[in-house]
Design a protein around this nucleic acid. Structure first.
Lengths: 211, 211
DNA sequence: GTCTATACACTGATAGAC
DNA sequence: GTCTATCAGTGTATAGAC
């Protein structure tokens, strides 16, 4: 086994610092919003002087934009399960599972996205109009094909997609409310499984793919 | 017909000004978040000098808190339809209708609430722990009674409530995203009816109260 | 009660030593 | 590349005239 190369090339060190900053930024933006977040808070969380942030990202907005773009790309990848399935029960079921898992593992990213959209998408409007629109149309086409094949009820594909996004992201965006109603404790493993099962059960039965 | 009394008592003038400020504040907070909102922006939207805001509300946080409390009270009232119904089809259906109507007519309030919860409810945590928890437990009891009576599938009441909140509030909180995917135009009357029908259809069928 | 002017704190961004 | 010191701009809040 050869020792891991030290790999401290300038490019790799740069990527490490950027990743550190982006991770801290996602957390701070999600907890305080764009306006409430300060470069000082992000720097403290990343363990770096404030000026370093401006070395890697020229402005607060540029840093924020990168955070949001990363979240969006991450979500797009997770949607692959939808396309690879050969039927609605498997495809939509797996999509719910994947989105619920993201809500559990990456709640901060979900919150940043929600806040960005609620504020009328000041920095990622172009993504909504291009990439997201194309993705949505493609998935709606798949749903319509399943409907035409008689494999699920004739529901409006757009509203079904909104429901999938709403229900799954709710567990991240409103996680604090859910935690409070759960007696102040985060959902445990069994409760997360119950949540997934509940969402899948109601939606899949609601669109006529399970009894 | 007697002329409307001028009714410019001090108390009434005060209430008018407060209402004007609160309305402007709700809009600005929803569009910019607490940190992004400025007292100057709220004052401009209310058509008042900035100092007047501090006369009626001592601090920005006090103003914000009043906005959030009003939204919460408004939502509680709208939930009466749930209690007055004598079955799940009527009760849950009417609750969905009511919440969808609120999302359509008062999207700003919904966004302020969502942001507040996402930031771990810094100013209304006490409401979550008392009023909301009691309300949720009461509604869960009703759902469990319906289940025991065999009038709907045995679903987890909490997760059903989360789904109701998520799906309906999504049309307010993510209204901008929906509008963008709708070709840049807000949903028209027919589309709102389709949204309501779609949500009701999938959920009510999903919990076994309609075929 | 209402408004103008201003005090005081904080933030994003940068200059410049190392 | 990294960090300290600092600037310029903006925000909340208030003092005080009317």
């Amino acid at each position: 086994m050869a020792a891991q190369p030290r790999s401290n090339s300038k490019k790799e060190r740069r990527q490490e610092s950027e990743k550190l900053i982006l991770s801290a930024a996602e957390k701070v933006f999600s907890e305080a919003g764009f306006g409430g977040a300060t470069m000082q808070l992000i720097a403290d969380m990343a363990g770096l002087p404030k000026a370093n942030l401006h070395y890697y990202f020229p402005t607060k907005e540029a840093l924020y934009r990168q955070v949001v773009e990363n979240i969006f790309q991450f979500w797009l990848q997770a949607a692959d399960v939808f396309d690879q399935a050969d039927g609605p029960a498997e495809g939509i079921g797996a999509y719910i599972d994947a989105k619920m898992e993201i809500s559990r593992r990456h709640p901060a990213g979900s919150k940043v996205w929600a806040t960005e959209v609620m504020h009328r998408a000041p920095v990622i409007q172009d993504y909504l109009e291009t990439t997201l629109m194309e993705w949505t149309e493609g998935r709606a086409a798949i749903i319509n094909r399943w409907i035409a094949e008689g494999r699920m009820d004739p529901v409006d594909p757009d509203h079904l997609l909104y429901m999938l996004w709403a229900t799954t992201q709710h567990y991240a965006d409103f996680g604090h409310q859910i935690e409070t109603l759960n007696g102040g404790k985060p959902l445990d493993d069994a409760q997360w499984e119950a949540a997934k099962a509940s969402v899948k059960r109601i939606i899949l039965k609601g669109i006529g793919v399970v009894e």
